[in-house]
């Protein structure tokens, strides 16, 4: 079953078409990267698919449910890690995890199990009793992403997860994301080409709200005649025509 299927999905604001007639299918279990320069429409796409923003036109199904009509059901199955670090700053790491677990409807032993899983996956155990505000930027970002997993989503949106992180912290997060592969569908937006190259099953490239390319890395190289994602991306974005 497709995790996401969009037909002519569009979001426009007064003078701007942020996403323009998006046709996209993402299969369940896929790790799909959405690439694009600033203002390409990546974050708006993620916000529409995660029920945060209402589309202006078009339709979409998320995990079999219709966007707009079944938003409550969709909310039960998806989670998001925003571009910005979004944690409760004066709560400890443990309290943050507990808060998100309770919001997801977990209780008692279930919460403890979630805490263990999240602490193991992200190595957060050693800072469990520290307030989020006292953590370094890298740890805060880790916590922010970890919180998106607390609800055990079937579909996870990671919007620029490694933005602003140093190379070591970025590689650590890659390892964590890699560990999630196959356990859920992941849609990743990123500016970092090497990130998309290292992690993705398939890549989508957007510019000016339009999807210019969808396919595997190999298909991207073949279409553009390049042998790395960065140069292939530049070729697609500067070329302007849809390549696939």
């Amino acid at each position: 079953m497709a995790a996401i299927e969009t037909k002519k999905l569009t979001k426009s604001y007064k003078d701007l078409i942020a996403v323009d007639g998006l046709d996209l299918t993402i299969e369940e279990g896929e790790l799909f990267s959405l690439l694009g320069v600033n203002g390409a429409g990546k974050t708006t796409t993620v916000k529409m698919l995660s029920t945060l923003v209402k589309p202006t036109a078009g339709e979409a199904t998320v995990l079999g449910y219709t966007l707009g009509r079944d938003d409550a059901k969709i909310k039960e199955l998806v989670d998001i890690s925003m571009q910005e670090t979004a944690v409760a700053r004066k709560l400890t790491v443990k309290e943050n995890v507990e808060l998100f677990a309770r919001i997801a409807g977990q209780t008692g032993e279930e919460i403890e199990k979630t805490e263990r899983e999240v602490f193991d996956a992200f190595g957060l155990g050693k800072v469990a009793n520290k307030k989020a505000a006292e953590l370094s930027g890298g740890w805060q970002r880790k916590l922010s992403i970890a919180l998106a997993l607390v609800s055990k989503p079937k579909l996870l949106f990671l919007d620029e997860p490694t933005l602003g992180l140093d190379v070591i912290a970025r590689r650590e997060l890659w390892r964590v994301i890699e560990g999630l592969r196959g356990k859920m569908t992941i849609i990743l937006t990123t500016h970092y080409m090497e990130e998309a190259e290292a992690l993705s099953d398939r890549i989508g490239i957007m510019r000016d709200g339009k999807l210019l390319f969808v396919g595997t890395k190999e298909e991207l190289y073949q279409k553009t005649g390049k042998n790395d994602v960065e140069n292939a991306f530049i070729e697609v974005v500067s070329g302007g025509d849809r390549n696939a």
Partner: peptide, 9 residues
């Protein structure tokens, strides 16, 4: 944080 929580139930 609020935007993120809004995706929750």
């Amino acid at each position: 944080l609020l935007t993120r929580l809004y995706v929750s139930r």
